[in-house]
């Protein structure tokens, strides 16, 4: 069965091609490309990806304007029906701004833009997106962001941890994130937001392939393989 995925492009997205490339190469079916001004999503999607970049120039707050765009209303409706949604970097910021994920992403505590490979610990290896990893496994994935400092109040953080919704944690401090959280799931487990870029670690020429298992997990979980 073909894997029907879509990558949403906002003005200022700059990792949309990388994301479409990763989804296409790993699933064998080219990802559909959707423009932010579209009110509807293609029918029958198996997977929606919100890519990295600087949507709307990060005006107001990172991801704030994109999260109010017409297509996001369709993405929110699809997510609520259970369609898997992956938001990476700016896509994660869009997910928190839209309310699909709790918390917010603040300016990095060290003020500087951070662009390097980081080590992540897989905290939950049972989700749709992470079943290809082992719990506790350490993987290397690149980050490139200025506003990746995850914030939520203590009660929300406790709830996320208690419900196994922390998907990935940084090994060591990268950006000041609360409890070193790098990626979180929604309550239903079909929405994942993460600052690191798995789509930039899918083939040897990228310098690492640790991001591959994330896409493989999702594709296998959705269409079998």
């Amino acid at each position: 069965m073909a894997f029907r995925s879509a990558v949403i492009t906002f003005p200022g997205s700059n990792c949309d091609r990388d994301m479409a490339d990763a989804l296409g190469k790993i699933s064998g079916t080219p990802a559909l490309r959707v423009w932010h001004g579209d009110h509807d999503l293609p029918e029958g999607l198996d997977f929606i990806a919100l890519p990295g970049g600087f949507s709307y120039g990060d005006y107001l707050r990172c991801g704030a304007i994109a999260s109010r765009s017409p297509v996001m209303q369709a993405v929110i409706a699809a997510a609520e029906k259970g369609v898997p949604v992956l938001g990476v970097c700016n896509g994660f910021q869009v997910l928190t701004e839209s309310g699909l994920l709790p918390g917010a992403l603040l300016r990095n505590s060290g003020i500087r833009f951070v662009c390097r490979d980081v080590t992540l610990k897989v905290e939950n290896a049972q989700s749709l997106f992470t079943s290809g990893y082992e719990a506790g496994q350490e993987i290397s994935i690149p980050v490139a962001h200025h506003d990746g400092n995850y914030y939520a109040d203590a009660e929300t953080l406790d709830r996320l941890e208690g419900e196994g919704r922390v998907a990935f944690r940084y090994v060591g401090d990268v950006n000041g994130s609360a409890r070193q959280i790098a990626g979180v799931l929604n309550a239903a487990g079909n929405v994942l937001g993460m600052m690191p870029h798995p789509e930039r670690a899918i083939e040897a020429t990228h310098g690492g392939t640790d991001g591959r298992a994330l896409f493989e997990s999702a594709i296998k979980g959705l269409v079998g393989a």
Binding site: L60, R61, A64, R68, P102, A104, L106, Y151
Partner: peptide, 9 residues
């Protein structure tokens, strides 16, 4: 509430 401020932070 809907745009100018992010009520989480």
């Amino acid at each position: 509430r809907k745009l100018l401020a992010n009520m989480v932070i």
